[in-house]
Design a protein around this nucleic acid. Structure first.
Lengths: 215, 215
DNA sequence: TAGATTGTTAATCGATTAACAATC
DNA sequence: TAGATTGTTAATCGATTAACAATC
């Protein structure tokens, strides 16, 4: 038991969670895998397989209780607990992420912001003051920070990641366009925006190739 | 021939492109699949399979010419051509994306910005003026816009996507936390930031479960 | 020519889908 | 009890890896 869950499955969990949240909000009490399949456009079989990786959440002849399933998935995702996070690099993107109230409702608490630009230090993002980079290690330890959001240029991201790891960070949400090499006790999630945009470009290109190019 | 390429392969192309760009910049002329494998931490076999989906870019006994391969991948990704894009929703995130000079170097040209807030209309993002939503359809047609970047709240995203599709947009880069339903001639690439953060949370949680919880 | 390394076929592995017995 | 729907095993499909003949 407690076998490793494939990342393919993990990637689908937030989407289940989102749909269940919407169903719950609109007062739906129970749902079958077939109904969910119709809404989400994935097979009922996959839904049942996915949930059964974590134990039986349903009941034969009835289906799944929406609220119960929602709560269980939130536990699986670990968003029933609070996560303290800091943002490193307070450019436009860092500031945008800091402002995501959406995150705070999911238990991600924005505790600190850091920037190497002295002109920014002392300014506020919401109710958090921008601090100099030198204070990072202390801050992480004193405030029990779990997650560092890296929104700094790629040249600085690798040495910064090493610093964060030494300071005991648990996870890095990496927006810098570089692959980080971390030990297995540190989790990394990359958001490579330009990769995403290139995929979009590929798909535009592919569609035009197959369907008679530009008109 | 010209068979459909799996999205698994497409997802890897931007990463190849990035590494090849770095190799090229540091003056490397040729590289074998084995050398690239060592650097990128993927199997040499996968590298050769991936490239061969698009034709033979290498030469037996020699390997791959870095510059040639880089250029070929840029053509496959369609980033050898210019893409005109507009940003809809000029909050922090929209503004951050508008400022990505990185994109302009890859042929993505930021042509217009739109927001429903009259207080923002008329203001500038770089050298682009924020316009009222009403002008979108006209603007798309007159300026040959390919891509719309959606950085608006999820409630507005679905009707906005419909409007954009009617106006002839080719692709939507969707940052709203909702699934868009589009016809097959419109490409969508989702960036669901909160899904990404939940995956990170899952992985923190999983690691702690397997390795003795918090210390 | 001999050595290196690709392009490509075959084998393996893993993920998705289908089927159905268990059971509410 | 009969009907519905899960949990789970088996079958299929697709993606990755291994192997090696082709060839530069």
């Amino acid at each position: 038991m407690d076998k490793e869950i494939s990342q393919a499955v993990v990637s689908r969990l937030p989407r289940y969670f989102r749909y269940l949240g919407e169903l719950k909000a609109s007062g739906v009490e129970r749902i079958s895998s077939q109904e969910l399949s119709d809404i989400m456009k994935v097979t009922a079989s996959q839904i049942r397989q996915d949930f059964n990786n974590f134990g039986g959440f349903g009941q034969q002849g009835y289906g799944y209780n929406v609220e119960y399933l929602y709560d269980e998935i939130s536990k699986i995702l670990g968003i029933d607990k609070k996560h303290q996070l800091i943002i490193i690099g307070t450019g436009n993107l860092g500031t945008a992420l800091a402002g995501y109230t959406n995150f705070s409702t999911r238990g991600f608490v924005f505790k600190g912001a850091f920037d190497c630009d002295p002109a920014l230090q002392g300014k506020m993002i919401g109710d958090v003051e921008i601090r100099p980079i030198e204070e990072i290690e202390d801050f992480i330890k004193k405030n029990n920070i779990d997650i560092a959001v890296l929104t700094i240029p790629k040249e600085q991201a690798v040495p910064m990641a090493d610093r964060l790891i030494k300071a005991g960070i648990k996870a890095i949400w990496n927006f810098a366009h570089v692959d980080l090499d971390v030990p297995e006790n540190v989790q990394v999630e990359n958001v490579h925006l330009s990769d995403s945009l290139m995929k979009l470009s590929y798909n535009i290109n592919r569609y035009e190739r197959f369907h008679g190019g530009k008109k």
